[in-house]
Design a protein around this nucleic acid. Sequence first.
DNA 1: GTAGTTAAGTGGTCAGACCAATTTATTTTT
DNA 2: AAAAATAAATTGGTCTGACCACTTAACTAC
Lengths: 202, 202
Amino acid sequence: MSSKTKVYEEVLNQIRNFINENELSPGDRLPSERELSEQLNAGRSSVREGLRAMELLGLIETRRGEGTFLSSYRPHHTVELLSAFILQEPKIKKDILLAKRILEKEATKMAFSRVKNGGIEELSSVLSNGKINEKQRHSEFFIIIFQHAENHLLQKIWQLMEDFSYTIEKNSYNSQFYSQLIETINAGKYETIEGLFDYLYN
Amino acid sequence: MSSKTKVYEEVLNQIRNFINENELSPGDRLPSERELSEQLNAGRSSVREGLRAMELLGLIETRRGEGTFLSSYRPHHTVELLSAFILQEPKIKKDILLAKRILEKEATKMAFSRVKNGGIEELSSVLSNGKINEKQRHSEFFIIIFQHAENHLLQKIWQLMEDFSYTIEKNSYNSQFYSQLIETINAGKYETIEGLFDYLYN
DNA sequence: GTAGTTAAGTGGTCAGACCAATTTATTTTT
DNA sequence: AAAAATAAATTGGTCTGACCACTTAACTAC
C-alpha cells in the first residue's frame, strides 16, 4: 500500500481529520488509544508514537485513566527541548531574530489604527511594571500589540519565535524603544514606526 | 524514583545529554534503538516514542537498515506541522493573505541590496514567460526574491502560506505591480517599496 | 441517602516476535 | 588476486499481548 509514509504519520493525519470532521475544540476528548488503533488499522504502539509527538508539541494532553484531550496550543513544552538542540546553529538564530522583528514591526503597524485609549494605558503599565524582567516586558508588550493587530496567525508564528529566542538569546533592547513606540502610536505618527524598528530596536 | 515524568521524556533528556557529551553534530549517528533501550533501561517502544517525537520536530532522521542520524534543525518542519492545526480557525484566510503580503514585502526589502545584475534579469524573464499562469508567475517571482533575501526561515513560512492561498483563494494581482517592483529595485529606490505593496498589490 | 467496594476503561510501559531495508562478512566465480 | 554473488548480522518499522497505575462509574452494604 502506501509504502513510504510511516504509520505514525498517517495516524497524525487521521487524527487531524477526525478533529476537523467532528469539529473538536480544546478540551474535547479524543478516542482512546485502543479505539484509534482499531479504527485506523494500526498497532497501538504506532498510534502512541503519533500521540506522543503531538503531546510533545503541546497539541494534546493526556491524563492517565481519563483519556487524551485536545489542548490549546502551548509551544513551551516544545521550545525548551528544541532550544537545547538548536543552540549550535548561528544562522538559524539570526533568521529567527530577524523574522521576529519583522513580525513585531508589522503587527505594530496593523495595531496602529485599532488601538483604543485603553490600549495605550495597557502598554504603558507593562513598561512601568517593576516586577518583571526585560524579557518578560518585551513579551507582554508585544502580546498586547498583537492582540490589537487582530491577526491570529501572525501572532502564533511570532509566539513560536518569541519562545525560541526567549531561551536562546540575551535580548537586550534599547529601553527607549518601547516608550517611543507608545508615543508614536499615541501621536498618530504612522510613518515613524518603520524607522523606529530599523534604528532603535536592539 | 516515583517520578511523574514519562519515560519517553526522560529518553529525550538522555539522548540530548548523549549528544552533548559526545559532541555529536548533524550527520552523526545515534545508537540503535535496541542499544538505547538497554542503556537507558527502557522498553524499545518507549525509546521509539521519544525518537519519533524528535523526528517529527526535524531533529533526527531515520533510515531503515542504517540507523538514526542527527539532522540540522529546520524550523519549518515545526511550522508546517503546527499550521495544519492552527489554520483551522475561522477568519484565517484573510490572515494568511495579509501575512503573506507582509512577508513578501519584507523579503523584497531584504533582497533589495543583495540583488545582483543577474537577479533583475531573472525576475524580468519570469514576467515575460508566457507559458505560466498568473499564480505561477507570482510564486516564481517571489521565490527568486526570497532567494536573494537569504532568510530560509521566512521563505519556508511564506511558501507554506503561498501553498495554502494557492488552493483557497483566487489571487488576482495588479499586473503593473511586478514590473514596477523590478523597476524600483533596479533604480535603487528603497523607500518606494513600502508604498508599492500598500497601494498596488492586490 | 451515604460510604465503601468493585469493575471497567484508559494511559504507561515492557517484552517478544516478525518484516523490510541496508550493511557487513563470507563464499563463490572469474 | 579481484570481482561478483550470496549469506549473515544489524537496524528501523510494526504488531500483539501482557501487566501496571490511575480514574470513573456502577454497584453494594449500611
